[in-house]
Design a protein around this nucleic acid. Structure first.
Lengths: 204, 204
DNA sequence: TGAATATAATAAACACTGTTTAGTAAATGC
DNA sequence: GCATTTACTAAACAGTGTTTATTATATTCA
């Protein structure tokens, strides 16, 4: 009986349709302005239909949140070829910052907004987060082994590195870097200089 | 004619009444659940009355945002007496983190939420932010003068320090530290250890 | 094939939100 | 004492996420 399979496929296609529309609207107008009604309008279905495929708005944005991690992951893995773990760490860090500055809405959803994390509480774990953090852990582990960075606890070091780059990006994304009273491109230069300084301090 | 003065005083008292109620509700239930109607209910006035004293919801939370900076400022100034600028910086940093962990809603409003920054765009500058950042700048300036930290550009160093502590607190406040899969008190210990490591790397 | 059942979609409603408007009652000015 | 200004609010407006009752379509089975 292939009907059940077709139904399942159609269900998945409808979910994709919603996600594609939601992602497009989200990146164009932000989270708040991406209402269930605006998605419904866009895909030419009634708002109630969306609730046949998603539990609530959070579930939609949880999927977008997961997709965003896939995109970031692809960016970060570009540097897998760099043999020196410290230089690899530097490349990963710069790419992380670049991703945040160039995709502020995605970054917001991944690391700042509360909405997607509500979903994770009900599910098992923050799989996407663990994947990205695991990548940082292995890179830092190599750095420590080869004595390229100052010796310290692996997790403490990882939290230090992640917190720093997250701080840079999130202060920028949430418009607190205005205290510098500099034009946008100069502000960005300060951010990257700050990252360089951080890496210099980390180096052994 | 003292009537005008009395009226002005009454106007200010009404504003204070709204702010006090809003602050209390905000710290108890968070931003989203603190609606204009819930404030109006609490102070036993109609919702429309609030709009006679405040332009919109953002203006109310901008005042709370400013008050929160006064509170943080008082905490930070406690360490004015520490002669050694590096040790003063360490004390300021720990107090900043402690403030964030113990007052997550205030911290959110001050450094994460978009709402209060909308107000700042229409006004002149982010006065409260500049005051706090200025305090960091003068402390770091002393550290550099006395060669207690590695030589670098003052503003680049300040952004590095602020971004790091902000990253620590904001990842915690927005529940991303769950990747550590540790109980809450252990997570906090990791944060403080991370801060110690950062300071050790900064030291000359 | 035709009646019974299951699925898919929706219109309308519910309970909220921030904000505005029109109208009322009280305080003030002359 | 009367006209005017001020203080306040009920009701409405335009949204929001979400649920319910109903209809139309598709599938199953006799």
């Amino acid at each position: 009986m292939a009907i059940k399979e077709r139904k399942e496929r159609e269900k998945q296609e409808m979910r994709n349709l919603v996600i594609e529309s939601a992602t497009q609207l989200f990146l164009k107008q932000g989270y708040d302005k991406t209402s269930i009604r605006s998605i419904a309008d866009d895909i030419e279905y009634s708002p109630a239909t969306i609730y046949l495929y998603f539990k609530d708005k959070d579930e939609i944005f949880y999927v977008i949140h997961e997709n965003a991690f896939d995109i970031l992951d692809k960016h970060l893995r570009q540097h897998d070829g760099i043999a020196d773990p410290f230089e690899r760490l530097r490349a990963i860090g710069r790419t992380y910052i670049k991703f945040g500055l160039e995709n502020p809405d995605y970054y917001d959803l991944m690391f700042i907004m509360r909405a997607p994390m509500e979903q994770i509480k009900n599910e098992e774990k923050w799989k996407a987060g663990e994947c990205a953090f695991g990548y940082l852990l292995t890179t830092l582990s190599e750095c420590l082994e080869q004595k390229r960075i100052r010796p310290a606890d692996l997790h403490v070091t990882a939290i230090m590195v992640w917190s720093f780059v997250h701080g840079l990006v999130s202060l920028y994304v949430r418009e607190r870097m205005c205290i510098l009273m500099l034009p946008d491109d100069t502000t960005r230069e300060v951010l990257y200089s700050s990252f360089d300084l951080f890496m210099a301090n980390l180096k052994m």
